[in-house]
Write a protein that binds this DNA or RNA. Structure first.
Lengths: 194, 194
DNA sequence: GCAAATTAATGATTTATTCAAG
DNA sequence: CTTGAATAAATCATTAATTTGC
């Protein structure tokens, strides 16, 4: 019997160490280029794919936030113990550390995570790197795309041979995606009927 | 000045029609293969990328659910008007149309959307197609990956030339992803230190 | 010591929200 | 207002730690 290869990525200590350093360095939501590079580099230390890197940052960021939220909640509760609540609610109650994020975030300003971004270690970088990094953050990878909760590369869509007018055949094809799967990358982007 | 090409995908009527038919046909969360095929096919009718297809199904499904939820809420409210609430809660209250989905779904059985799946048009397909389709639903695309909320393809990670031991250079590289970006696809998957 | 049983971490997916173009 | 795009939160699922009884 085969070793039944592990179904999920298991980061090596080296990989983890580097990822954490990058995180501490301020990287939160790496774009396609960054992920590709990180993946390439980390592959020196063990098998790894881009999606592993993507998920790692996603999860790490989320669980950091979560940890912080809990901490704030506890602090809040502590405060409530120290100073018993007033007999009725005052405006001041809403100017304190505000409830749970999941309840409060709909009130937050503009930027999705403007308050979260860059609260770690930016200062440890020289300003030029930082500038480039921030520039990166406002860029979105436009040549990558996400699929099924799994992503995929944006190769110029290749037209299938024999695509029928009716959608019947398409449905069938989608039901049995194993057949007819070719991979040539001809650049026939002839349609711009947009 | 260039026409400043539209920043987001604008589906053509044909594309929309096909997507909707596929949706009615039961497709909800197409996997990588399906998305690739659909994309290829739809590209006959206008420019389109895989992520457009991905997002389309994502949004369509979500907004369908949303619509349904609202409908149920209204129904519920109607019922409350017709028959005024009992003086206290009875078991029967929990056997009726159950509150808002977002509140109720944590009580649902196993499958993530077992109740949601297949409530549209499965019966319009012959059983063999349906079987294949359902089989598909349990499969995950393993050769695609997601990036930045954008995905990317799983080319075997190519090791960079000159990757330093320290992460300093990696950080810099990630900050300036424009340089040193090469695209050869050598299959050097030599690491399995898992 | 050492497995089976529990629990904690964390990788992977899906769903809910939000932003913003048109 | 509708809807494409993107991100955050919630959830699932597997692996690692840890505990427990022997």
């Amino acid at each position: 019997m085969a070793p039944a290869a592990s179904t999920r990525w298991c980061p090596t200590p080296e990989q983890l160490m580097i990822l954490e350093e990058l995180y501490r360095g301020g990287i939160r939501t790496p774009n396609s280029f960054q992920i590709q590079k990180i993946t390439n580099n980390l592959s020196l230390y063990g098998k790894i794919e881009g999606k592993n890197v993507f998920y790692w940052f996603q999860n790490h960021k989320a669980r950091d936030r979560q940890k912080l939220r809990r901490k704030l909640l506890i602090q809040q509760q502590q405060q409530q113990i120290e100073s018993p609540p007033p007999s009725f609610v005052t405006a001041a109650d809403f100017q304190q550390l505000p409830v749970v994020y999941s309840q409060a975030h709909s009130f937050l300003p503009q930027g999705r995570e403007s308050s979260m971004m860059g609260c770690h270690g930016w200062k440890t970088m020289d300003s030029s790197s930082r500038a480039e990094m921030e520039n990166q953050d406002t860029m979105y990878g436009q040549d990558w795309m996400m699929i099924n909760g799994t992503p995929c590369c944006n190769r110029p869509p290749k037209t299938l041979q024999l695509f029928p007018i009716t959608t019947k055949a398409l449905k069938d094809e989608c039901a049995t995606p194993y057949h007819h799967f070719s991979c040539s990358t001809s650049t026939s982007t002839s349609n711009t009927t947009n």
